[in-house]
């Protein structure tokens, strides 16, 4: 058993101070990461979420950039160029080369309309307006509605949730009953009622969506607050005499941040969805303004003959929804240390 090989003579001297200093038992080989760094690292590893983030950034830049520099004026009517299909230079595939089937024959719609020099990437609508510019414009309106509504929803929902969870007792029970009553009517019905009262328009859509969609946030924040409230560090802060407001901002909010961020990522697409539904029904944004919903509604009427007029806004809408959902999923995984590999 024992090693019989010759060992150097000084092997059995007690370890020197230098040797000991070199051996730092507290050394951690894996790099230490803060919570946010760790979440960020995991988010970056999630390809779907990462691509979504880049896509969303691109869509935001394009949609809001088009307010300054749009390929065409989204409201400029060209009746002679009406219903031209997509024409993307350099692509010869049917559907993207400006041709369409008319009476069983594929013809060049651009030649027929006398617009040989022009090319509309997504084609034009029934009034000859450039669809790409309309889609960018509509995306901008949809995003603005969704973002502003979500912002309201954030403030109402988070405040309501924290208050309800923090107070507890009867106040909490009452506040939860109120939410249950609101939740006992489908959201869209409430939104429609509110819009009828406020008169259709962008502002009333924003208000209606904001007033109805905060309940989910409030419930999640309340549940989390109830949990955090029992934690030792809150007790410590209370014992030290910190004011409730200070505790809420210094201790509660940072620990709620992941719940809030994740839920926001799911609120935005649902707001976009509600707006699209409203516009689709016909009580949303009205002409000449456009949103993704109105574009879809317009496109759907001619889907049989001019499918591109619905495909393009539908594609953009689905990409935005998909990207927010994937990002939300990615963030949830990133913030949840249990999914750590």
């Amino acid at each position: 058993m024992a090693d019989t090989a010759k060992l150097p003579a000084d092997s059995f001297k007690p370890m020197s101070a230098d040797d000991r200093a070199a051996l730092d038992s507290e050394k951690i080989a894996a790099p230490s990461l803060t919570f946010m760094q760790d979440a960020w690292r995991r988010l970056k590893k999630n390809k779907g979420a990462w691509v979504s983030l880049i896509l969303l950034a691109l869509i935001f830049i394009l949609a809001f950039g088009s307010a300054i520099a749009s390929p065409h004026d989204p409201n400029q009517v060209h009746p002679e160029y009406a219903n031209l299909p997509s024409k993307i230079p350099g692509i010869g595939i049917n559907g993207f080369n400006g041709t369409l089937v008319q009476a069983g024959q594929r013809i060049d719609a651009y030649k027929q309309a006398g617009a040989t020099g022009a090319h509309y990437l997504m084609g034009t609508d029934y009034l000859g307006r450039d669809l790409l510019s309309r889609v960018l414009y509509g995306t901008r309106i949809s995003l603005i509605i969704a973002l502003v509504a979500t912002l309201f929803d954030l403030t109402i929902g988070v405040t309501y949730g924290i208050f309800s969870g923090w107070k507890g007792g009867r106040v909490d029970t009452f506040m939860q009953r109120v939410i249950e009553i609101i939740l006992s009517i489908p959201n869209l019905v409430v939104i429609v009622l509110l819009i009828l009262i406020l008169k259709p328009g962008m502002l009333s859509i924003i208000i209606a969506i904001a007033l109805t969609s905060w309940t989910n946030m409030a419930r999640l924040v309340r549940a989390q607050t109830l949990e955090i409230k029992e934690q030792e560090y809150i007790l410590a802060a209370r014992t030290l005499g910190e004011s409730s407001l200070k505790i809420a901002f210094k201790h509660l909010l940072p620990n709620l941040s992941s719940v809030i961020i994740i839920n926001t990522m799911f609120t935005i697409p649902s707001a976009i969805f509600f707006e699209a539904t409203l516009s689709y029904i016909g009580i949303g944004i009205s002409s000449p303004q456009a949103s993704l919903g109105t574009l879809l509604n317009d496109g759907q009427k001619n889907f049989q003959f001019l499918p591109y007029q619905m495909w393009w806004p539908a594609l953009v809408l689905c990409i935005i929804m998909l990207a927010f959902n994937l990002l939300g999923d990615g963030l949830r995984d990133a913030f949840d240390p249990r999914t750590k590999e």
């Binding site: 699209a276 539904t277 879809l296 889907f303 999923d329």
Partner: peptide, 17 residues
């Protein structure tokens, strides 16, 4: 995730067509 992201009315039009 596609099922969640595609609004039912878009799907309805596509199915119908």
């Amino acid at each position: 995730i596609l099922g969640i992201s595609i609004p039912s009315f878009v799907l309805a039009v596509l199915l119908q067509y």
